[in-house]
Measured scan of single mutants.
Amino acid sequence: MIVFVRFNSSHGFPVEVDSDTSIFQLKEVVAKRQGVPADQLRVIFAGKELRNDWTVQNCDLDQQSIVHIVQRPWRKGQEMNATGGDDPRNAAGGCEREPQSLTRVDLSSSVLPGDSVGLAVILHTDSRKDSPPAGSPAGRSIYNSFYVYCKGPCQRVQPGKLRVQCSTCRQATLTLTQGPSCWDDVLIPNRMSGECQSPHCPGTSAEFFFKCGAHPTSDKETSVALHLIATNSRNITCITCTDVRSPVLVFQCNSRHVICLDCFHLYCVTRLNDRQFVHDPQLGYSLPCVAGCPNSLIKELHHFRILGEEQYNRYQQYGAEECVLQMGGVLCPRPGCGAGLLPEPDQRKVTCEGGNGLGCGFAFCRECKEAYHEGECSAVFEASGTTTQAYRVDERAAEQARWEAASKETIKKTTKPCPRCHVPVEKNGGCMHMKCPQPQCRLEWCWNCGCEWNRVCMGDHWFDV
């Protein structure tokens, strides 16, 4: 396979590697080409510095992935760790964990309700045991953590790749202090920090972006993250068709209702045909949960890209028209025109101005929308079919299609509260000796007794199943 190397943020060049090629071997190839010592090179990928003893497969490097290699003399205490030698983080029983690669970060837990604080980093599902597709590297999971809308060759929703760059020099040479644990960490600028490894760059702020994971991409090709779309790892039924499908869209209502993408497309087109989208002054033209839940309008309007190009163009047109109407304007009634106009409040005669090729020149009556006339309008008909009709959803289907309910059931079956801080902690095999993952707590306690870890627990039921 081919990976592209950008040395000291210059133009990239291809390097041929195998899945079992080590990072140090990659350094040696680059060092020979650039005429520099291999031990002064640092390989940066997806916000993480890659260790010498890791392989291309370990690092989730795919065909035509772009890695950054910078030349920086080692500072005291760094060289041993980078070589894969006596790194205290690798000691058996050590409590410190390697910062998780962005290629394996899962933010789907952050669609849980606000009262489930902490689960994004504490609760991990076991539903990723799908067998890898044919042709994928051994052991590589097909679980997708992110979804994007690819405006490039795909023109559809695709699995996405999370990447990070330095907000100062805009190069992907920043190593994160810690990985993101929720969508806010990724979507809110300057929320996460790190250290830029580019020479002479003092940058410390992280800037995240997404790429389409279905095809090789260049540095400049980015895609918009659709953070309401998630892999259906909890096997929730769709609120409309009641099938279990994946991926799904999880509405931001209190129940976190789930809808499959085909039904979401149908829901949007139906509402669009009836012009029953909601115009929100802050958000724009949007839709609420299909069950009509309060405070559930979709905030990231790129989710409506699921409509496809033709329907999305209609959505944008109707949204612009609705904006004009909300501002007190009118639409030209001549067939084939429909231009938005903003006449004076007491102006009865409205002319669709033909300047700049935008208007048709038609003069019409503001009251009856017919060709302009003197005197009273002959008839004014009330528009028919403008009443909002509820999208029919079966109550039982709505009850079963809740992301929140599956989460709470998982928590109930696989977790116990920490005796000190009461945060839910998952036990997935292993011994009875637990350690609270909350940095402010870190209590060592017994899963069996529910009390602080002691010699009695150690001698009596340390390794009970």
Rank of each mutant, 00 (worst) to 15 (best):
A397E: 12
N235S: 13
C293G: 01
G114Y: 10
D106W: 04
N356E: 09
A291P: 01
R420P: 01
A214C: 07
E321I: 06
W183E: 00
Q34T: 13
A390G: 10
V350L: 11
L283P: 02
W447V: 04
N273I: 04
A405T: 13
K416H: 05
Y149M: 07
A398E: 14
K211A: 14
V29E: 11
F463Q: 01
A120Y: 05
G179M: 07
T103P: 13
K349N: 08
T410G: 08
P216N: 12
G152C: 06
N81E: 15
A172D: 15
R256F: 05
G179N: 09
L266G: 05
K211E: 15
L26H: 00
R305Y: 06
W447S: 07
K416S: 07
L228T: 02
P199A: 09
G94D: 12
D184W: 04
N8Y: 02
V250D: 00
K76G: 14
K161N: 09
H200M: 12
Q252G: 12
V456P: 15
W403A: 03
R191W: 04
C431M: 06
Q282T: 12
C182I: 05
V456N: 15
A363C: 12
V29Y: 14
L162N: 01
P113M: 10
T173C: 08
Q165W: 07
D464N: 15
N448V: 03
G459Y: 15
G35Q: 07
G340F: 05
C418Y: 01
A405R: 13
P159G: 05
P73I: 06
I236C: 06
A398I: 13
Q317H: 10
W462P: 15
T177Y: 13
S205W: 09
C451F: 15
D86C: 09
S233C: 08
A38C: 07
C263M: 00
Q78C: 14
D219Y: 07
Q78Y: 14
C421H: 00
E444Y: 05
R33I: 06
Q40D: 15
A291G: 08
P247G: 01
G35F: 04
N52K: 02
G35I: 02
K413C: 13
P335Q: 08
R275L: 02
F364K: 03
A230M: 10
C241M: 01
E79Y: 09
G84H: 09
F45V: 14
D346V: 09
L102Y: 08
E96F: 09
I69N: 00
K435E: 06
